[in-house]
Amino acid sequence: MTAVDRDLDLVRRSARELARKFDLDYWREKDRKAEYPWEFVRAFADAGWLGSMIPKKYGGLGLGLTEAAIMLSEVAASGAGASGASAIHFYIFPPGPVLRHGSEEMKRAYLPKIAEGELLLAFGVTEPGAGVDTSRITTRAKKTDGGWVVNGQKVWITNAQNAKRILLLARTSPRRDDKPLDGMTLFFTDLDRERITVREIEKAGRSAVDSNELFIDNLEVRDDEVVGDVGRGFYYLLDGLNPERIVVGMEQLGLGRAALELAVKYASERVVFGRPIGKNQAVAHPLADSWIRLEGAELMGMKAAGLFDARKPCGPEANAAKFLGSEAGFEACDRAMQTHGGYAYAKEYHIERFWRESRLLKIAPVSQEMVLNYVSTKVLGLPKSY
């Protein structure tokens, strides 16, 4: 075992030990009450994990994507599921554009606060009329003396109930058919509730972490709150898409492992017709198949993360990691439902929570179909279909 392997093993063990201090009943209650898991976040902040990918000079640990992916996979696998993983995830990935393209003043002012868990962010990109076609967002920023005034609407914005600042994408020049992704600017500004109305969306899963609609009315933003160059905001977001897709896949396979662990225990103990149901191949084989698929998804996730950390192209691998992790994770949760039979609907068994949460990540942050579109055109060279 190499030194690198030993370090990753330490990351895995440390994250697992900390995450499992919060048991399944803790997460069931957070889900039932739709209550943000602040105790859990605080524990990970105190251990330094929120700043895992923030450089040491800004108060972080200075680790790579590989370590962050392992940590978040262990969080999900602990039984925290998507609620726990998302609560940590949104301290690690939304700051990416600030870290790569923000001014030095911006980095010094905010990255240490994020690493310490003092500053929670929201990420304002998605709009109800645009969907996955980000080039057609209609939120606009109009130039003023020394700043900008923003008006528009966003949807499915995580953390907006509690976030203090927002990374907000807006059009600063009209859309051009020849360059549809130009002319969007990324702002890092206060989530001013006098100018931004936040309405929570009631949803099926990941209830402990809020999702919201935002209505933006004459929000004033300073020039020094522009991330990078005006008009290049979408391209700055692209820098964060590959690492986020890798980690989402790793979180999802962790969620699948949590469900598989409970299903195996139940199949070993549940006796029907005088024998444990796990003795029946109709029960055992699907669970074995899920284990294989989860292991394969992790290999792709680790390959993609390794390429990213080595600063090598990883678009195909990142998309494949998201696809495989989401498919394998959901399938494991669905098979755990089948294994538990009618008891899967009882909240005391936790399976229904895993199932609800795993379904979300086949859609977000990018749908499986858009991953297949990417592979079809960018990897296989087929004609573009969208």
Results as ranks from 00 to 15, higher is better:
E74D: 09
E74V: 14
V75A: 09
V75M: 10
A76D: 08
A76P: 11
A76V: 09
A77S: 15
A77M: 11
G79Y: 09
A80R: 12
A80M: 13
A80E: 13
G81N: 12
A82V: 13
A82E: 12
A82Q: 10
S83F: 08
G84P: 14
G84K: 11
G84D: 09
G84S: 12
G84W: 14
S86F: 05
A87K: 06
A87Q: 08
A87S: 15
F90A: 05
F90D: 12
F90K: 07
F90I: 09
Y91F: 15
Y91A: 07
Y91E: 03
Y91S: 06
Y91T: 03
I92R: 04
F93Y: 15
P94L: 08
P94Q: 07
P94V: 12
P95R: 07
P95N: 03
P95I: 03
P95E: 07
P97F: 01
P97M: 08
V98Q: 03
L99F: 03
R100D: 01
H101Y: 13
H101K: 13
G102P: 00
G102I: 00
G102D: 04
S103H: 00
S103L: 02
S103Y: 00
E104V: 06
E105D: 05
E105T: 01
M106N: 06
K107E: 04
R108E: 13
R108N: 09
R108F: 01
R108S: 12
A109G: 02
A109T: 12
Y110N: 09
P112T: 14
K113V: 02
I114D: 07
I114S: 08
I114M: 10
I114Q: 06
I114H: 10
A115N: 14
A115T: 11
A115F: 14
E116Q: 15
E116I: 03
G117P: 15
E118C: 09
L119E: 08
L119T: 11
L120D: 05
L120Q: 10
L120S: 06
L120K: 07
L120A: 13
L121F: 02
L121K: 01
L121N: 09
F123N: 06
F123I: 00
F123H: 10
G124W: 00
G124Q: 00
G124P: 02
G124L: 00
V125N: 00
V125L: 13
T126H: 14
T126C: 02
E127R: 01
E127M: 02
P128R: 07
P128W: 05
G129E: 13
A130E: 03
A130G: 04
G131M: 04
G131Y: 00
G131A: 03
G131R: 04
V132P: 11
V132E: 13
V132C: 03
V132M: 08
T134G: 01
S135E: 14
S135M: 04
R136M: 12
I137V: 15
I137C: 11
I137E: 12
T138S: 09
T138L: 09
T138Y: 05
T138M: 10
T139P: 00
T139D: 00
T139H: 05
A141V: 05
K142A: 09
K142D: 11
T144W: 01
D145F: 04
G146M: 10
G147N: 11
W148H: 03
W148R: 05
V149Y: 04
